[in-house]
Amino acid sequence: MTEEEARVRVAEGVSRETLDGLDRLVALVSEENARQNLVSPSTLSIMWSRHILDSAQLFWLAEGASGSWLDIGSGGGFPGLVIALMRSDLTILAEPRSKRATFLRETADALGIVDRVRVAASRVETAPIDTPVSIVSARAVAALPALFAMAARHTTKNTLWLLPKGRSAADEVAEAAREWQGDLRLVPSLSDPDSAIVVARAMRRISG
């Protein structure tokens, strides 16, 4: 998918204001990347297809689910800041690296969404989250069993998990099934037809 095709695809599903915000996010990440490695330099020229569309599709998979959204290891804001630009409910960005957490706060302010973004500058296991979240996302953070274990304390059986896992998705689901059970399915990725997103609910650790 070309950059123009990716931008057009995203534009079809967002308002003009949101699209402007996404353009601004691309510019801010590209500028900051000269100071800290938020994304691979090789992807700076394909931000829309590699990062924006890849993030936006998670919002569409949430099918209008309301409530707080927890993004684990937000890094340069993907998918967390993209999600926050697309919805009005609270988005919590768990990012343990202090420089990146500072960038996320400053960028949320610059994008005019600071009122619906909370940055937790800590590991997700110890993040100060008072109530269970409705949705969890994580992009390129850890294998599925580790992700479920890391965030389980912040979830309920109704929490929706949206986890891009690339071409290893099926293998990771099989690995996770040794420790966790629930409703898991794979959805093809819009940004990479050879990759998939794990969509899960009712996750619980297998006892015994």
Rank of each mutant, 00 (worst) to 15 (best):
D89W: 13
P132Q: 00
G21C: 13
A127Q: 11
D109S: 14
R100V: 06
G13P: 00
A170N: 05
W48E: 06
T2I: 04
R201T: 15
A62L: 04
L163I: 13
S134F: 06
R204D: 14
E125P: 10
A27I: 00
E172D: 01
R105V: 13
S15R: 04
V133C: 04
N37Q: 03
I72M: 12
G21E: 09
A176L: 09
T131G: 01
P193Y: 02
A149D: 06
P145W: 11
S49P: 01
T126L: 13
V173T: 02
A84M: 02
S137L: 09
A108T: 01
T43A: 05
Q57Y: 10
A176Y: 09
I52K: 14
F103N: 05
R105A: 11
F103P: 04
L28S: 02
G77A: 11
P145S: 13
N37E: 02
G166D: 05
L90R: 15
E175F: 04
A152D: 15
I206T: 13
W161H: 03
N158M: 06
T2F: 02
E12V: 03
D71A: 09
P145K: 14
A94Q: 11
K157Q: 15
E63V: 02
P128L: 01
V199E: 15
R185I: 12
W161S: 05
L144Y: 02
A151E: 01
H154Q: 10
P164Y: 00
L104T: 06
S40V: 07
S168V: 05
P128T: 02
D23F: 08
P96D: 00
G76L: 08
